[in-house]
């Protein structure tokens, strides 16, 4: 059996709350690709990611993760996915190591592999010395790192990150960026949203720009420059050109 050609295939995805939040999005992300989803506030980025992660049910459309139908076989798809929300939600009364033990248990990891991964991640994220401390005393940055360690411990094939660098100081943000790049080089497919365009410019292979629930442009930075007619322009200039309101 051939491996699926796409890590993530989203077709005609739609979701309406009081107004359409996602209005027919198509995404095709290759295995090992680092994909950035950019857009102004309220464009539908988080809703799209939450549907891919299985947190929200789409009104219509299909989502496949490495050939597994997210809607038809949610448990099978979730085995391959890790989700990192913008707000680091943790169990305050658990220590970091207990939290990782809990996450590894949910994904039914073999103990040796879980132990090895946990140690590597905690050391890599500078949390090893804090492993027996309860999360209630952690700063936001430390909580974000602990949640990231939880997301990565089971070696997900698709990592979905919603604003992973919000509220992090420069040093922690650097650590997180380096770790994500390492994972991408190791074959993990990553899709992230961010408002920090410099991050997208530096990290991602391809960018999708979303506005009013629709994908308005997609491609590498050079391709986006061409679409926007701003050759040599920064991502910020390209982004602002592509999402500028159409004069009525």
């Amino acid at each position: 059996m051939n491996p699926p050609a796409l890590a993530l295939a989203v077709r005609d995805l739609r979701k309406t709350f009081t107004r359409p939040a996602v209005a027919g999005i198509d995404l095709s992300i290759r295995p090992g690709e680092f994909y950035g989803l950019l857009g102004p506030n309220g464009a539908g980025k988080t809703t799209t990611l939450r549907m891919i992660a299985g947190l929200l049910k789409p009104d219509t459309g299909s989502i496949e993760v490495f050939g597994v139908d997210v809607l038809g076989d949610p448990i099978g798809a979730k085995r391959l996915i890790a989700w990192l929300p913008d707000e680091p939600l943790l169990y305050d009364k658990l220590t970091v190591s207990e939290y990782l033990e809990f996450v590894a248990g949910l994904w039914q990891m073999e103990p040796e592999r879980a132990q090895r991964n946990a140690r590597t991640l905690l050391e890599r994220l500078d949390l090893w010395s804090h492993r027996d401390e309860r999360c209630e005393g952690f700063s936001r940055g430390m909580k974000q790192k602990a949640v990231l360690a939880g997301a990565l411990i089971h070696d997900p094939r698709l990592l979905i990150l919603d604003e992973p660098l919000t509220g992090l100081d420069a040093a922690i943000a650097r650590e997180v960026k380096d770790l994500l790049l390492e994972r991408a080089r190791g074959g993990c497919t990553i899709i992230l949203t961010t408002h920090i365009l410099e991050v997208a410019e530096r990290l991602v292979d391809r960018i999708g720009i979303i506005q009013s629930g629709k994908l308005v442009a997609e491609g590498t930075l050079d391709e986006l420059r061409r679409i926007a007619g701003r050759s040599g322009g920064s991502l910020e200039e390209v982004f602002l050109r592509l999402v500028e309101p159409v004069p009525s």
Binding site: R79, P85, L89
Partner: peptide
């Protein structure tokens, strides 16, 4: 406390 961890885990 962390419903999203459980909602995205491979468990019904």
């Amino acid at each position: 406390d962390a419903p999203e961890i459980l909602a995205t885990a491979p468990i019904s």
